[in-house]
Design a protein around this nucleic acid. Structure first.
Lengths: 208, 208
DNA sequence: ACATGTGAACTGCTTCACAGCG
DNA sequence: CGCTGTGAAGCAGTTCACATGT
């Protein structure tokens, strides 16, 4: 299969989210134009994005909402639930462990880890924080696939290597560091300070 | 000034973060090659990124760490502190309000808002949650510049409009929705579910 | 008549490669 | 001689425009 641009995959997620909302409103079909208006893009872009994966629409009509919803879920690999382990039981880690937006979209938090003995054993949302050293042994039991890293920047690279060694093939990194991992491991980073700095740049250069 | 690509601004943030770390290790200069290795890019990219803003290096030598650090801070508008208001005192909002990574990089949380009366008045980290309706009146007192939206998806667009009306010119949006705001308002979005779906897509298509 | 699907044109970011300067 | 700074080339993602199917 041809390599799909990151930007395309992101937009597919946006389309899907909107479709899941509009199907509740009972509309039978939707045009690329409508999808574009809500996703902040153009109709040509919508059609091109979808065309990488097949022909989902009917000419003159648009796309069947239930069919396209289902196709997008398939494309994005959301036809199944994914098991997530949170690594780092600090403020951000705990907030993520309790965040409903994960579970409701099929991402189930199955374990929370920390290396701080004082945090190990504390309970959050029915889950007990476990020590990082038990992660490798836990893999067989929980079979998590995605590791969410919410650890300090200084520890992030080392923790990432441990997570890769344990067998995770995907990492969502919240530490403000560039992670270096083997190519077979997928990484997405959410860097809050970096986003704020982007806004700072734009505010400072409003004049253009 | 010429329009600078988003990707360039992001990389500048990454370079800056690394420089702030390496200056503590006392290295006097750094080459584009070293900067690239840590930032996950190429030396040509580093030089091109910097060239949009001037000539900061010395041929044959590299870049002076303190000088480049200072220049990058200037470019990104970090020569001053920014005042941030958190809107939404749910789990994510509270975690963000307490997050040290903001303050330590010059982003000061000066107020937390919510529309839920039960949350109004509660205290976190020395700050009292205020009712959303008092935001416009508070602007004169606090003069916040950046609004961080941590509200449910259904409320996000409406809250965003209120924030724009109050006079904010920059929004960091954590709600999983595409916000529609006037062009003079800068928006960055952090969509956690979308990032996880990106990983889901990659895990499902590892074969390529 | 209408909206999709798609090759072709275009735009803009990235990479190359080398002249220029310390 | 080494490393920057930068036009030029290359490439990837977006937009255009129209043939095609309903």
């Amino acid at each position: 299969m041809k390599r799909i641009a990151d930007s395309t995959v992101r937009r597919l997620s946006v389309y899907l989210r909107f479709l899941e909302g509009s199907s509740q409103r009972g509309l039978p079909t939707i045009s690329s134009e409508e999808l574009a208006a809500h996703g902040g893009t153009t109709s040509a872009q919508v059609r091109k994005d979808l065309s990488f994966f097949g022909s989902f629409g009917k000419r003159g009509l648009g796309y069947s909402v239930p069919e396209l919803t289902s196709s997008l879920r398939d494309i994005l690999g959301l036809g199944r639930a994914w098991k997530v382990a949170i690594v780092g039981a600090g403020k951000i880690g705990i907030a993520l462990a309790q965040y409903d937006g994960f579970r409701s979209r099929g991402f189930h938090v199955v374990a929370v880890y920390d290396s701080d003995e004082r945090k190990v054993g504390t309970r959050w949302d029915g889950m007990t924080v476990r020590h990082l050293s038990s992660m490798a042994a836990d893999m067989a039991e929980y079979e998590p696939e995605i590791a969410v890293l919410a650890v300090p920047a200084e520890a992030a690279q080392e923790v990432a290597m441990g997570v890769v060694d344990a067998g995770f093939k995907a990492i969502l990194n919240f530490a403000p560091t560039q992670l270096h991992v083997p190519p077979e491991v997928s990484v997405r980073s959410v860097n809050l300070a970096l986003e704020l700095e982007g806004l700072s740049y734009e505010l400072s250069n409003r004049s253009r």
